[in-house]
């Protein structure tokens, strides 16, 4: 009887994850060597690595939750593979959802038909392929394109890149307001966002007033985790008020 938790699937998952870990190590070592060669101080490198590691912890836990959620229908190996390497929780869940939906199955029950399972794997695989293919063909051109702009007009290229970031931030901050029409509970994400913003402002003030420069690499993770933690009392409070 087929199970999505079959050892064979664990083996495939382990192999792919190991290969991709190997690639990450390769790029990391190269980058570290290059960093030293162009004179970036070790302190900066350490700071970068530590802050990236710390920053990743909370989002990684939420990704883990995504793995657990998808494991209900897909078992553990497949979501483990997809979410540790290639995918993102929105895509994987949506792709799995679309595939199971097309097969008349749901994401709430374990798939026992190997053909159905294989179908889901194919949908998820083909869905994510395109960006990888584009990266192979276009990444170099895009990156050189950016360098040309920078050489022509450095100030503008700085604004251009900032605009890209701001575009992303504004889309996500807009998303925070998506549920406000639903009554007070729909404002919870907004309150959490405000809490996180407030934390950040406080941290920024601390850094300026007390000269706590070391805080700069932790400011974002602290405001994010703080916002998440505050989400609990906020949600509870709104729950009481909304009654």
């Amino acid at each position: 009887m087929f199970s999505p938790n079959d050892p064979f699937l664990y083996i495939i998952t382990a192999i792919v994850i190991l290969i991709i870990t190997g690639q990450s190590v390769f790029f990391l070592v190269r980058a570290l060597r290059r960093a030293k060669a162009i004179g970036i101080p070790s302190a900066t490198l350490k700071k970068t690595m530590i802050s990236s590691a710390v920053y990743t912890i909370a989002p990684a836990i939420s990704i883990l939750l995504g793995v657990i959620t998808l494991s209900k229908s897909l078992g553990f190996p497949l979501p483990w593979l997809r979410l540790s390497v290639i995918g993102a929780i929105t895509y994987e869940t949506a792709a799995a959802g679309a595939a199971t939906n097309a097969l008349g199955l749901s994401l709430g029950t374990l798939i026992t038909d190997p053909s159905a399972f294989l179908t889901v794997v194919w949908v998820m695989t083909i869905g994510i392929m395109f960006s990888l293919v584009l990266v192979v063909f276009l990444a170099k051109r895009i990156e050189s394109g950016m360098m040309k702009i920078r050489n022509r007009d450095e100030k503008w290229s700085g604004f251009l890149v900032s605009s890209l970031f701001l575009g992303m931030i504004s889309a996500f901050l807009g998303l925070v307001f998506a549920e406000v029409g639903k009554g007070l509970t729909g404002w919870i994400p907004v309150f959490v966002m405000l809490a996180s913003m407030l934390l950040m402002v406080i941290l920024g003030a601390l850094m300026k007033l007390l000269q706590w420069k070391w805080l700069s690499e932790y400011a974002l993770p602290i405001s994010m985790l703080g916002g998440m933690a505050l989400a609990i009392p906020i949600t509870n409070l709104v729950g009481i008020l909304a009654k």
Partner: peptide
């Protein structure tokens, strides 16, 4: 509730950093 609000918490803090530096660009989007 903590895990349901990761994105607002993440982008709240991030927003402060970027918007404070480029508020003129940030307003419209």
């Amino acid at each position: 509730p903590a895990f349901e609000n990761i994105l607002p918490a993440l982008f709240g803090g991030l927003g402060v950093v970027f918007i404070s530096k480029n508020w003129k660009i940030a307003v419209a989007p």
